[in-house]
């Protein structure tokens, strides 16, 4: 049975293997311990901050010192707050961040379409926790019967980065309450807990926003009633008590 399932889902493994094997040990994949200063005129300096006061900052760049006045600085990213790479791309390591993503089912009998927003706080350089809200449509097809569900989900989540490479791999877990959007009329369903776990990758960039890709596994509990018709127009009533469960491909971006 397990062997059968392994083959059935082999292309997921292909994606996973891609995630893991594309992490090389090349020099430019290792983070460097330097800070970044963005100037208002558009210039960007990467180096070691060796001294700073209220007015100015001294930065060592390629063995030479440079003094930069704070009035000229647009933004500073200290070495301890970022994972910086040779090519100037970086990941953030501290503070709050927001994220938006859109996801769709990549297997199963029915479609899923989710939009998710979250606000998280980085507890340390690997772990962040926060809250999330989402809008989720899931179609379920069982025994030929087509069931539509609509939820607004509100919950909590945690995200853990397992690598510090440019393409930074993370695991995530999400626990939420799906609040039914179908409560009036004839077709109704209940609220229900939903769980989502997965693995993904955040791509480093020179900007504050980072592209993100993930493979998640989503489960939503709900009960409900839906009406449909047979080919003669006669009514079919469907009472259901189900777990919606399917893999999702999530595409989105992280802000900060």
């Amino acid at each position: 049975m397990i062997i059968k399932n392994v083959f059935k889902f082999r292309w997921y493994f292909f994606i996973l293997i891609c995630f893991l094997t594309t992490q090389s040990n090349a020099q430019d994949n290792r983070p460097i311990d330097k800070s970044i200063i963005y100037l208002k005129n558009g210039s960007i300096y990467i180096g070691d901050i060796i001294e700073e006061d209220d007015d100015k900052i001294k930065m060592e760049i390629n063995d030479s010192e440079m003094t930069i006045y704070r009035s000229e600085i647009k933004r500073m990213l200290y070495a301890e707050d970022i994972l910086l790479y040779q090519n100037g791309k970086f990941h953030m390591l501290s503070g709050f961040y927001g994220s938006m993503s859109s996801s769709s089912a990549i297997d199963g009998d029915g479609f899923s379409s989710h939009i998710e927003m979250l606000l998280n706080y980085r507890i340390n350089d690997r772990l962040s926790v926060g809250v999330n809200v989402g809008f989720e449509n899931n179609e379920v097809i069982i025994s030929g019967f087509d069931i539509d569900t609509q939820f607004t989900s509100i919950g909590i989540n945690a995200k853990y980065y397992i690598t510090n490479t440019r393409k930074r791999i993370f695991l995530y877990s999400r626990l939420a309450q799906g609040i039914s959007e179908l409560t009036d009329g004839r077709d109704v369903h209940t609220n229900g807990i939903n769980i989502q776990n997965g693995i993904g990758v955040t791509f480093s960039s020179r900007k504050m926003s980072k592209f993100q890709l993930a493979l998640g596994f989503f489960s939503q509990k709900t009960e409900g009633t839906q009406y449909s018709e047979d080919v003669l127009g006669q009514e079919i009533k469907i009472d259901y008590d189900i777990w919606i469960a399917r893999p999702l491909l999530k595409i989105g971006f992280v802000l900060r």
Partner: peptide, 13 residues
């Protein structure tokens, strides 16, 4: 987590 599961009770003519 990859297959919808549950019970459906269907009433029809």
């Amino acid at each position: 987590c990859t297959k919808d599961k549950g019970t459906l009770t269907v009433t029809y003519q």
